[in-house]
Simulated assay, not measured.
Amino acid sequence: MESAPTREAPRQRAAVRPQDGWFLVLAFAVIGADQAVKWLIRQTIERGDSLAVVWPLKLVHVTNSGAAFGMFQGAGPLLVMTSILGMIAIVVFLFNPSFAHPLMRLGLALMLGGAVGNLIDRVKDGEVVDFVKVPNFPAFNVADSAITIGVLVLVWAMLREPQPSQPGD
């Protein structure tokens, strides 16, 4: 007896669906908030000065020509290229059906908004404005916070995502 030919499941394609719009709205909100607060810092605090808010938090006006935590100082062109490649990867994953869980997309949207926010500064000024300072930690900004929170949300979602069962389990 001949068995019926097996069909492979059609491969799902990455696509922007109407219900995914809020992920893009979130990414744009992060970009807007990041750029607005950096503009405000540039207008109100002289570069190098600080303003005590509530211990241990200070607002500062410092710039960083490197990556997170001051690494790769002066590597602007390399950081621009890696940012662009990273953003492309995030967009691909953001609309990939394998990353359909809302928490995964939330993390990716936060990462995308943060990456674009810092890229704008890097391209426009050659450096990123950082303004939040706590003791024993490098200064950071809204974009850095969004990237960090996005990574944590993404990892948490991936750890919580049930793994598909393997044949024979």
Rank of each mutant, 00 (worst) to 15 (best):
A100E: 15
H101V: 14
H101R: 15
H101E: 15
P102K: 11
P102V: 14
L103Q: 10
L103G: 12
L103A: 10
L103K: 04
L103H: 09
L103S: 14
M104S: 01
M104E: 08
R105Y: 01
R105S: 00
R105W: 01
L106A: 11
L106M: 15
L106E: 09
L106S: 14
L106T: 15
L106H: 08
G107T: 01
G107A: 11
G107K: 01
G107I: 01
G107E: 02
L108I: 10
L108Y: 12
L108T: 06
L108F: 14
A109H: 02
A109D: 03
A109N: 02
A109F: 02
L110S: 03
L110D: 08
M111V: 05
M111I: 10
M111P: 04
M111N: 03
L112E: 05
G113W: 10
G113C: 13
G114R: 02
G114Q: 05
G114V: 00
G114W: 06
A115D: 02
A115Q: 02
A115Y: 01
A115L: 07
A115E: 07
V116C: 03
G117V: 07
G117F: 04
G117R: 00
G117L: 06
G117D: 02
N118G: 05
N118L: 05
N118T: 04
N118K: 06
N118C: 09
N118A: 08
L119V: 08
L119E: 11
L119D: 10
L119W: 12
L119P: 08
L119M: 12
L119R: 11
I120Q: 01
I120T: 12
I120G: 06
I120C: 13
D121P: 08
D121Y: 04
R122L: 12
R122Q: 05
R122D: 10
R122G: 13
R122C: 13
R122Y: 14
V123I: 15
V123E: 09
V123D: 09
V123T: 13
V123C: 11
K124T: 06
K124M: 14
K124N: 10
D125I: 03
D125G: 00
D125S: 15
D125P: 00
D125R: 13
G126I: 13
G126P: 13
E127T: 12
E127M: 14
E127R: 10
V128Y: 03
V128T: 07
V129A: 11
V129T: 08
